[in-house]
């Protein structure tokens, strides 16, 4: 039977993946053109820089979420861990007088610990990832509220705090590109190398695609899962701190949207909800699409309330497209 049919199938399937990528790219371009027409400011260099700057936290969290999805798990806690990172950083500086960069390091360690807990409970204790990260999300929510009492930390006095998010390295059209954007770009390059050129990265594909195969190929599944969750924790915390640095304050709840947007970004970029498939470049594109949509809606004057609605709709649409249905 099958020789010819198999070849046909392969072509059709390969086309499907590339076609999806092309569709997403076209959609991004169309979306940008639309907002460009609707708002004269949208395509101005200054706004494009703003676009990248505001993409930083989401971009980092999308990496986190993509790698978790790659192993077939969700990380629901990313948004809350981002808040936690920002809060711990600012709290240490303001209330405890810890030097800015030492506090920054401690913030990263907090993310690392959160990720480790999620990873170890998922990998070794076999707790479903969404439940353990959901529970963690609530626990960190409690911790944040205990630290802050629900208030934000204003950081106007602390100049070195703002360096990462506000210092201008290059100036384009009077708008500077802060270090955070370079961190984002670097993170994506590293993410690409990790997934494409390291054994660990390739192993993650196998872990998500076929656990049994991974086990028999001698791949350490638990280590892979702990790795992605730990990475997720660190990146989320970093994202939260870069957000704090840019906004000049530590906010108790910044992460409301991030978990959702990150899933939307990765899934639009072709990451399979069932695991075993992701693409760093397309994750970036998908994430940018979500950012562009948000920024564009703001620019054309759609109230923030509608963005909840739009976000929900986009996530549902993205997942719907990605869900593999048997005929």
């Amino acid at each position: 039977m099958s020789e010819t049919t198999q070849i046909v199938k392969v072509k059709r399937k390969m086309n499907r993946d590339t076609r999806q990528s092309i569709v997403v790219l076209i959609a991004l371009v169309v979306m940008m053109a639309f907002f460009g027409i609707m708002s004269e400011y949208f395509l101005k260099p200054s706004n494009l820089v703003t676009l990248f700057v505001s993409a930083v936290p989401l971009g980092l969290i999308a990496i986190a979420q993509s790698s978790c999805l790659l192993t077939g798990n969700f990380d629901m806690s990313v948004g809350m861990v981002a808040s936690l990172g920002g809060i711990i950083w600012t709290w240490l500086i303001v209330d405890l007088g810890v030097p800015t960069y030492a506090a920054f390091a401690i913030g990263l360690v907090a993310g690392l610990i959160s990720g480790l807990i999620a990873g170890v409970t998922t990998a070794y204790m076999k707790v479903p990832a969404w439940i353990s990260t959901f529970a963690l999300m609530q626990i960190w929510n409690g911790v944040i509220l205990i630290i802050t009492n629900g208030d934000a930390y204003r950081m106007t006095k602390y100049n070195d705090f703002k360096w990462l998010g506000q210092f201008k390295i290059f100036s384009i059209d009077g708008v500077g590109i802060p270090p955070a954007v370079f961190i984002l770009i670097l993170a994506y390059i590293l993410f690409y190398i990790l997934l494409k050129y390291t054994k660990l990265g390739r192993d993650l594909y196998v872990i998500g695609g076929n656990q049994e195969a991974a086990r028999n190929a001698g791949i350490n599944i638990n280590r892979g899962i702990v790795f992605v969750f730990t990475m997720s924790g660190v990146l989320s915390s970093l994202a939260g701190m870069l957000f704090a640095s840019r906004s000049g304050s530590g906010q108790p709840i910044i992460g409301d949207f991030y978990s959702m947007h990150a899933i939307a970004g990765s899934v639009i970029g072709g990451t399979a909800m069932t695991g075993g498939k992701t693409n760093p470049i397309m994750t970036f594109v998908g994430m940018m699409m979500v950012t562009v949509l948000q920024n564009g809606l703001n620019m054309i004057g759609v109230p923030a309330y509608y963005q909840h609605l739009v976000t929900g709709a986009i996530v549902i649409l993205a997942i719907w497209v990605q869900t593999e249905r048997r005929k």
Partner: peptide, 14 residues
């Protein structure tokens, strides 16, 4: 056949 966790999470947002 969409994942219930994420789908209802998105619905909540909507």
């Amino acid at each position: 056949k969409m994942n219930s966790f994420i789908t209802t999470f998105a619905l909540q947002s909507a």
